[in-house]
């Protein structure tokens, strides 16, 4: 799938190293940004705490199960931003800055991750893991469900990240702009912090196949607490893989419409 996976992975890790070096030049700023990236998780925690303090909460989900879901949703959100900043990416497409990515001997999709991700979102990933760990310490889960959940989360997150790449390119081709993409990501993350059933069939489909963040948050959370069986698990896993492939191939095709910029 990627032309020479090892070579591209090495390039990505090399770029990650220099992204971090560049980011940590200003240590205070780096610290502030990492703290800011945890606020999404904090907001989810407060929201769930308010709901469960004044009502019976959401049916079929205990307080700690909801916290686990919030943790997962925010981990996905932070991973997305860690890998690709859609606004920055589209801006680079528009002003020709993406030229530099195309002059490197690597898969252009990997070049996107190498150039347009934001390292400070590690704060959000850590806070999400922290909240998840806290929630799991107050609930009963078994090893098999944890492993299955991790698998679903991994493949789901890959599908969502690739979706973001694709939608950024679509936005560039159609509108030459992508200012709203960050919003869409934030809104769908916000939505994926809650059981998808509350959004009805349309909402569930949207967050499973339309903007597939549910694949990396809701379904892994359901798997964790055995709210779905293993047949469902396999189906979601296959869906994640299929969507990943579709988004990847579509992104490569969309790159043909890049017209550079400037003189």
């Amino acid at each position: 799938m990627f032309e020479d996976v090892t070579k591209n992975l090495r390039f990505f890790l090399l770029s990650l190293k220099y992204n971090w070096l560049s980011f940590l030049v200003y240590r205070t700023q780096a610290f502030v940004w990492m703290v800011v990236s945890t606020f999404s998780t904090l907001s989810g925690l407060i929201s769930i705490s308010v709901i469960y303090s004044i009502s019976g909460g959401l049916p079929g989900w205990s307080y700690f199960q909801m916290l686990a879901l919030v943790g997962m949703a925010n981990m996905v959100y932070s991973i997305i931003n860690f890998m690709i900043g859609p606004q920055t990416f589209v801006r680079a497409l528009r002003n020709g800055g993406f030229d530099q990515a195309l002059t490197k001997p690597y898969d252009p999709i990997i070049s996107i991750f190498a150039r347009y991700g934001t390292p400070y979102n590690i704060g959000g990933i850590i806070s999400g893991i922290g909240l998840l760990a806290y929630a799991l310490s107050n609930t009963a889960v078994n090893a098999l469900s944890i492993v299955s959940s991790i698998l679903l989360f991994g493949f789901g997150a890959a599908a969502v990240v690739m979706f973001l790449v694709m939608i950024s390119l679509v936005s560039y081709v159609l509108f030459r702009s992508g200012n709203y993409l960050q919003w869409i990501t934030a809104i769908t993350t916000s939505a994926s912090q809650y059981p998808l059933a509350i959004y009805g069939l349309a909402g569930t489909l949207l967050l499973t196949v339309g903007f597939p963040i549910g694949l990396a948050s809701f379904y892994p959370a359901e798997m964790l607490f055995l709210k779905i069986n293993y047949v469902y698990f396999l189906a979601i896993l296959v869906l994640s893989v299929v969507l990943f492939i579709i988004f990847y191939k579509t992104s490569k095709w969309l790159l043909k419409f890049y017209t550079s910029g400037g003189g």
Binding site: E3, L21, S22, D99, Q100, L102, T103, P105, G263
Partner: peptide, 24 residues
């Protein structure tokens, strides 16, 4: 064959799209 080609070429885009990392 873009990837094979750029392995063997170098590019300078001027000050508009620099290759140098700004803060390093």
């Amino acid at each position: 064959d873009r990837i094979k080609l750029v392995q063997q070429v170098g590019i300078v885009f001027g000050s508009t799209h620099p290759q140098l990392w700004w803060d390093l």
